[in-house]
Amino acid sequence: MPRRSLWVYHVNTGGCNGCDIELLAALSPLYDPERFGVRLVESPRHADAFVLSGPVTLQSLPSVVEAFRVGRPEAVIALGSCACGGGIWHDSAAVLGGIDPLLDLLEEEGIPRPRVIRVPGCPPRPHSILYGVAVLLGYAEPKAAKLLAEARRAARI
């Protein structure tokens, strides 16, 4: 993704609010994401990236798919444990279970797979959210990929 201002659209897919208020906190002048050109926009059509929080409940699914169909984002920031992998709801009957099943489903619908940045945590701190943004813009390296690669080397997989 080129280094330019990043307009994001916030989609709560049935999260507990924890990630959402941390996102609001991360937007406050104390953390100042506007120095990276980050702006929360009001329509999915204007967005470069989506910020997705929550485990994707079945009830919210049609609206979420619609937002992706309209917005076709280049990247998705999966915010919090729930969005990253379903969290403690992963085996509840009422949820889809995070970003991965959602992307599979979107692919079936013919919506191209966006780049995914995962910001785990319950909830992630505003600092982590900014780190995720920095990774997306190419200012920082993803942490888990490096750790995973090291672990794989160590285990010789």
Binding site: G14, G15, C16, G54, P55, T57, Q59, S60, S63, I88, W89, S92, A93, A94, V95
Partner: peptide
């Protein structure tokens, strides 16, 4: 009830 996650059942 978009946020129905089935907590009580879980």
């Amino acid at each position: 009830f978009f946020v129905y996650r089935g907590i009580e059942k879980l």
